[in-house]
Simulated assay, not measured.
Amino acid sequence: MKSYLKLTSFELSRFFKLYLVLIAITIISQIIGVIVYSNRYLNEMNKVIYEEQMPKAEFLEVYGRSSLFDLTQTLWFLGPIALCVVALIFYVFFIWYRDWFGKNTFIYRLLMLPTARINVFFAKATSIFLMVLGLIALQIVLLFIENMIYQWMVPNEFRTDMAVSQVIQNFRYLNIIIPTTITKLILSYGVGFMAVFIIFTGILLERSYRWKGIFLGIGYCAIAAAVFVLPIIIQELLQKNYLYLVELIIIEVILGLFLAACSIWLSSFLLKHRITV
Results as ranks from 00 to 15, higher is better:
residue 23 I to W: 07
residue 29 S to F: 14
residue 21 V to R: 06
residue 127 S to W: 12
residue 176 I to Q: 13
residue 90 F to K: 01
residue 181 T to H: 11
residue 203 I to N: 01
residue 77 F to D: 01
residue 49 I to T: 01
residue 240 K to E: 04
residue 182 I to K: 13
residue 96 W to C: 02
residue 162 M to E: 13
residue 63 Y to T: 07
residue 215 F to I: 12
residue 198 I to A: 03
residue 4 Y to Q: 15
residue 7 L to P: 01
residue 164 V to S: 11
residue 22 L to F: 09
residue 229 V to M: 02
residue 21 V to P: 02
residue 103 K to D: 03
residue 154 V to N: 04
residue 109 R to E: 06
residue 205 L to C: 09
residue 247 E to M: 02
residue 215 F to R: 14
residue 217 G to M: 02
residue 108 Y to V: 05
residue 246 V to F: 05
residue 25 I to A: 10
residue 7 L to D: 03
residue 164 V to W: 14
residue 61 E to C: 15
residue 206 E to N: 11
residue 122 F to H: 12
residue 72 T to V: 14
residue 52 E to S: 09
residue 164 V to G: 08
residue 88 L to W: 11
residue 193 F to G: 00
residue 198 I to D: 00
residue 254 I to C: 03
residue 6 K to N: 10
residue 216 L to M: 08
residue 24 A to N: 00
residue 125 A to T: 08
residue 71 L to I: 04
residue 111 L to S: 03
residue 120 V to G: 03
residue 226 A to P: 01
residue 113 L to P: 04
residue 149 I to D: 02
residue 161 D to G: 12
residue 229 V to H: 01
residue 86 V to G: 07
residue 114 P to N: 08
residue 80 P to M: 10
residue 100 W to V: 14
residue 188 S to F: 10
residue 183 T to P: 02
residue 244 Y to W: 04
residue 194 M to Q: 09
residue 276 T to S: 11
residue 264 I to T: 03
residue 82 A to Y: 15
residue 103 K to E: 03
residue 34 V to M: 01
residue 157 E to L: 14
residue 87 A to D: 01
residue 131 M to G: 09
residue 237 L to I: 15
residue 180 T to P: 02
residue 224 A to H: 01
residue 254 I to W: 02
residue 111 L to E: 04
residue 63 Y to L: 07
residue 45 M to Y: 15
residue 94 F to N: 05
residue 2 K to N: 06
residue 131 M to E: 11
residue 253 V to E: 05
residue 155 P to C: 14
residue 216 L to Q: 08
residue 117 R to N: 09
residue 212 K to E: 05
residue 188 S to P: 02
residue 97 Y to W: 14
residue 265 W to T: 10
residue 168 I to T: 04
residue 132 V to W: 13
residue 155 P to K: 13
residue 270 L to I: 15
residue 56 K to P: 09
residue 11 E to Q: 10
residue 221 C to K: 03
